[in-house]
């Protein structure tokens, strides 16, 4: 059943760019990676980071700088960007894991705002205009100028990221994270070095968030302040909740719907898009906390009459 779903999604993903505007699809994939990375933290470790835009946008700036100013090949820039995001994640994480719950969210938010100001004021980032005109270059000999080629590269990147995150969640490491999420004191008393686990989860999540940001930068050829603004951190929270916190496919579903919606609404609604996103946020939090995938699975299980199944994997 599960394998069938994944196969169908894989085929859809491979065929879709021939029917739908590839740039929109690429944007969706980038945000899907971003949301999956975020979900690793919120859904499987119980840490609500409100600063993931810093890694998403920060890595985009770093990669952009490597490509545009240092004229390095795209492959090197991607690796450099991901490493920089991991480093940022390590720095932010080491501070943030000193506090829990709401404080954790506020600390990550504040540190991300610091990154925002750095991007705004540093001499190399282009200030208010952002870093414009970053060439896509080529990847392993493939020229990325063509949207369709870039799409398949990003699609491959998405599958890789998805598999690694999937593997992480189902590894012994992932199980410890879940234990920490459920009962931190008990995990400590069982002898797990909880801060170390949290920090590693944070770094992995930051690295993949950065990866997503870099891919988005390649698609649009620019890195701007929007990518590091706290609205972006909020967007990824929304996508994850909307799709389903702590579900494997939830973030993918959530980001697909939210990005498509944003894309459709931008022309007709203008600034009201923010209002609509806010309303979706409020509704999700009030009555739809399991998200689309979470609710669907719950419904499916109710239909089968198996009420006492363990939590959805």
């Amino acid at each position: 059943m599960r394998i069938a779903i994944y196969l169908i999604l894989l085929i859809i993903g491979a065929v879709l760019p021939h029917f739908v505007y590839p740039v929109l699809l690429m944007k969706i994939l980038c945000f899907a990676i971003f949301a999956c990375a975020f979900n690793l933290l919120l859904g499987f470790s119980g840490l609500l980071s409100f600063g993931h835009a810093a890694f998403f946008g920060g890595a985009a700036y770093v990669s952009g700088y490597l490509i545009k100013n240092l004229e390095l090949p795209t492959e090197v820039a991607i690796i450099g960007g991901v490493l920089s995001a991991a480093l940022m994640g390590w720095l932010v994480g080491i501070l943030a894991i000193r506090r829990q719950g709401i404080y954790f969210a506020m600390v990550t938010l504040a540190l991300a705002q610091m990154v925002y100001f750095i991007c705004l004021e540093a001499p190399i980032t282009g200030g208010e205009d952002g870093m414009q005109g970053i060439p896509r270059g080529s990847f392993l000999g493939l020229s990325l100028k063509d949207d369709l080629t870039l799409y398949y590269v990003i699609f491959t990147g998405f599958i890789l990221a998805f598999l690694i995150i999937y593997r992480t969640i189902h590894s012994p490491f992932g199980q410890v994270l879940k234990a920490i999420r459920e009962n931190e004191s008990r995990a400590i008393s069982l002898g797990y070095d909880v801060p170390k686990y949290k920090l590693l989860a944070f770094v992995i999540s930051a690295a993949f968030a950065g990866f997503a940001g870099i891919l988005k930068m390649l698609v649009f050829n620019f890195a701007t302040l929007t990518d590091v603004h706290w609205h972006m951190s909020g967007d990824v929270v929304l996508m994850t909740i909307f799709g389903g916190i702590g579900t494997i496919l939830g973030p993918v579903v959530g980001s697909s719907i939210i990005i498509t919606l944003e894309d459709q609404l931008t022309d007709s609604a203008g600034d009201m898009v923010t209002v609509i996103m806010g309303v979706i946020f409020v509704v999700c939090v009030l009555i739809f906390r399991k998200g689309i995938v979470g609710e669907s699975v719950a419904l499916y299980q109710r239909m089968l009459g198996r009420k006492n199944l363990p939590q959805v994997k």
């Binding site: 909740i241 600034d271 209002v275 946020f281 409020v282 939090v285 906390r289």
Partner: peptide, 27 residues
Amino acid sequence: WLYQVDHLYGLLLTFGLALIFEGYFRS
């Protein structure tokens, strides 16, 4: 309605409200 669930949902709800208010005044 959120007092019984994780306090983080309160943060998220008020975040949504902030988006609504700001978006409305901006438009």
